[in-house]
Amino acid sequence: MFGFIAARLVTAVFILLGIVVLNFILIHAAPGDPAAVMAGEAGAADEKFLADLRTQFGLDQPFTVQLWNYVSGVIQLDLGFSYRQQMPVAQLIWDRLPATLLLTSTAFVISIVIGVIAGVLAAQMQGTWWDTVISTVALLFYATPLFWVALMASLVFSVFLGWLPGFGYETIGANYTGLARVLDIGTHLILPASTLGLFFTAIYMRMTRASMLEVSRLDFVKTARAKGLRSSVIQRRHILRNALLPVITLAGLQAGQIVGGAVLTETVFAWPGIGRLMFEAINQRDYNVILGVFFISAAMVLLFNLITDLLYGVVDPRIRLTS
């Protein structure tokens, strides 16, 4: 188990390094002057400023030296400077990160819990009216663009019905403290988190249902029936645990999609996280911020992956005991 986790950690570090190199290559592959790219192309910088940048980042030096400078900068968490916002990118991201972590992890948990429960129910009632309803709803969610669901949800629940706030992270100017603040943030969180989780709920539901049906055809389920076990016990103890393995793998793979989806949800709901930051940076062509957010979101994905790997190890003794 220790070796397994250690190996995953090493892989994660290599992937992060790879992304740093990729970022560096992208800056240089972009059409135009890398200095202009870093400064933000829309004339945020004058000529003298660009010249300073070139010296500062050694853009007159050989490629490998530049690469080394860039990589070592990122390792010290120097993600560059946003000339648009006049702030270090790391600082910008650091300020916005908690909001995004709250949003994505809530969506992650909601989607897995609801998705797995719905999938189990659909599998148990396979072929019935309920199964058809659950499967059809999942199919619809699966086909719906994230940003559109977010828009429609804010339209219905915020604009038309006025039940929930459809904007921001907390009520501006209210200055709540303690529990009141937590509740305030919680109500603001409901719409973004549930719309972000919707698509993934559908994915986990479909996967769980398919996996439950697949496992229920395996030999050991027949053994369990031959022992005289009640079918509810067989479902829970024998089928569900085995069926969850591919769902956990999928959850790890989907973590990246959730972080990516946050860009859309945060944009629609004006959620002050790094996704919203990225959207603003896109409009302003603020490349350092875009690349910084990209790097941090990849790091978040690796963190989610590590958690699902750990979970997998806990559930599956073959991984826990062999490595």
Binding site: V259, G260, G261, S297
Partner: peptide, 8 residues
């Protein structure tokens, strides 16, 4: 596959 594809 690990890189958040939409962000990329």
């Amino acid at each position: 596959q690990t890189i958040p594809s939409f962000a990329l």
